[in-house]
Amino acid sequence: MTYNAEDLLVPDTSPQDIHRVRLADYFETRYKKTIDDAGLCWEGVIRNLSLGKDGKLNLAGLLLFGKNPQQFRPAFMVKAVYIDGTDIASQHYRDSEDIEGCLLDQYERSLAFITRNLHRLQAGQGINSLGKLEIPEITLQEVLVNALIHRDYFISAPIRILMFIDRVEIISPGHLPNHLTIEQIRFGLSNMRNPIIASHATRQMPYRGLGSGIPRALENYAAIQLIDDRSGNQFKVIIQRPILEKP
C-alpha cells in the first residue's frame, strides 16, 4: 500500500495537540452539528476525518489543526524575505518573517507579507481610494494555496517567498508529481499529492481543487513563469512586478 507523507503518524503527538476550538468550529461549519451532537469523542473525530489514529495525529492533522505544528515538524513553515534589489545575493532586506502555525495561519500571514510589500495603483480610482494591488490578490491567493497544499511533505524544508523589486518568487519543496508537466497544469490537469489536506482545505482556504488554481492565477495575471526544477527537487512560481523600483 502506498502512503502519502500526510498519512504518516507523527511520533509523540496525541489528541491533546489538536487545537480543539479550531477543529470544533470546522466540524460544526462543515457538518451543521456540534461534535457532541454527533455523539463523537475527540479521538473519533480525528479518526473519522483522517487526521490520525491509534492515539496519534498524522501529518495532515498536525498541519491542519495542530496547536503548534512546528513543535514536531519545525521545517514545515514559510520563510519570507523582501530583498532590496534584483539578486538574492543582496544583503539589504526590507522585510523578513518566519511564518509558522497551521496551514491556514501560514496562508493568511504569507498573503499579508506579500500584500504589505506591494504597491497599490490608483488605476482610475478616486484619489482617496486604497488602490488596487499591482499583482491581483486572487493570483497571489491561488499560488500560495497551491504551494501549501501541493508541496512535497516528504522533504523537510520550508516554502520560501522571495520578494524583489521586480518580481515575487514562491518556491515549494518537491517538483511536479509523476509525469505531470508545466503545460498540463496550465490547462488544469492535476495529480493530487496530499488528498487529505486538499479535502479539508477547500473549506478553510480559497482552494477549489480540480486543478483550477494555476489557470485562474494566469487568467488574472499573465506575467507568471512556472519552473519545474526536477534536479533541485522544487517548484518555482515567478510573478513579475509591473513596476521596477530603484534599488
Rank of each mutant, 00 (worst) to 15 (best):
A5Y: 14
A5D: 13
A5F: 14
E6P: 12
P11A: 11
P11V: 05
T13I: 13
I18Q: 06
H19F: 08
H19D: 15
R20G: 01
V21Q: 06
V21M: 02
A24M: 10
A24I: 02
D25P: 00
F27H: 10
E28S: 10
Y31R: 10
T34G: 05
C41Q: 11
W42V: 11
W42E: 04
W42N: 03
E43A: 09
E43N: 14
V45E: 05
I46E: 00
N48M: 10
G52D: 02
K53Q: 12
K53G: 02
D54H: 03
A60M: 07
G61L: 10
L63C: 09
L63W: 09
L64N: 12
F65M: 04
F72Y: 15
A75E: 15
M77Q: 14
M77C: 15
V81S: 11
Y82F: 15
D84C: 13
G85N: 06
I88P: 00
H92F: 14
H92N: 15
R94W: 08
R94A: 10
R94H: 07
D98V: 12
I99L: 05
E100R: 14
E100M: 14
E100Y: 08
G101H: 07
D105Q: 13
Q106C: 09
S110V: 08
A112K: 10
F113P: 10
I114W: 03
T115A: 04
N117H: 12
N117S: 14
L118M: 13
R120W: 00
R120G: 00
Q122S: 08
I127H: 10
N128C: 03
L130W: 03
L130E: 05
E134I: 09
P136G: 03
T139L: 07
L140F: 07
E142V: 00
L144E: 00
L148I: 11
R151C: 06
D152R: 09
Y153N: 12
S156K: 15
S156C: 09
A157I: 00
I159M: 04
M163T: 07
F164W: 01
S172C: 07
S172I: 00
H175D: 09
L176A: 12
T181W: 02
T181L: 01
E183W: 01
Q184A: 13
F187I: 01
S190R: 08
S190P: 00
M192V: 15
I196P: 11
I197S: 09
A198T: 06
S199G: 07
S199I: 09
T202G: 02
R203Y: 11
R203W: 06
Q204F: 02
P206L: 04
P206M: 02
R208V: 12
G213V: 01
P215M: 08
A217W: 01
A222G: 06
A223T: 04
A223I: 05
R230D: 00
R230Y: 01
K236P: 00
V237H: 04
I238T: 14
I239V: 15
R241Q: 06
R241E: 10
E245L: 03
P247Q: 02
